[in-house]
């Protein structure tokens, strides 16, 4: 049963990882951080990535439920958006939503170096880490 710190440390072990954070997208609060922030301040990065995550999580155009989303237990809470990826000239940012058993609004943010990072690997690993956070 890994906690927030273990989860962020594991994210930082990915090739090219430069910074990681667990952020609440509703308030913009960083619940935990590791490594560096692109602007030198994790709190600013958390507030900014939270705005992006909130738009993705809330806009109707992204809210179509998947075919496997069965009606009934938990389906109304199921987060339709899995992740948001931003590619910049020097890096990748992967925002992975975390689904909890209670009402929450958190995501993992991983900042990767463009040359050293492996986006496909990072995406898969972040999914596993997000699931590990809520694994009983």
């Amino acid at each position: 049963m890994p906690g927030i710190d273990e989860c962020l440390l594991e994210a930082m072990a990915l090739p090219g990882a430069r910074g990681a954070a667990l952020v609440d997208w509703s308030s913009g609060l960083a619940l935990g951080t590791a490594g560096d922030s692109p602007v030198g301040d994790h709190e600013t990065t958390a507030a900014e990535t939270a705005e992006l995550a909130r738009a993705a999580a809330e806009y109707e155009s992204f809210a179509q439920a998947g075919p496997e989303a069965a009606p009934g237990a938990g389906a109304d809470r199921a987060q339709p958006v899995e992740d948001v990826i931003v590619t910049t000239r020097s890096g990748y940012h992967v925002l992975r939503f975390v689904e909890t058993s209670f009402d929450s609004s958190v995501f993992l943010h991983l900042w990767l170096d463009r040359t050293e990072g492996n986006l496909a690997l990072a995406r898969l690993r972040l999914r596993a880490l997000a699931e590990g956070l809520v694994l009983r």
Binding site: M1, G3, C7, S101, S104, G132, L133
Partner: peptide
């Protein structure tokens, strides 16, 4: 409850 969930909440 999962450990991570407890910390988040």
């Amino acid at each position: 409850l999962a450990g991570g969930e407890l910390e988040i909440c």
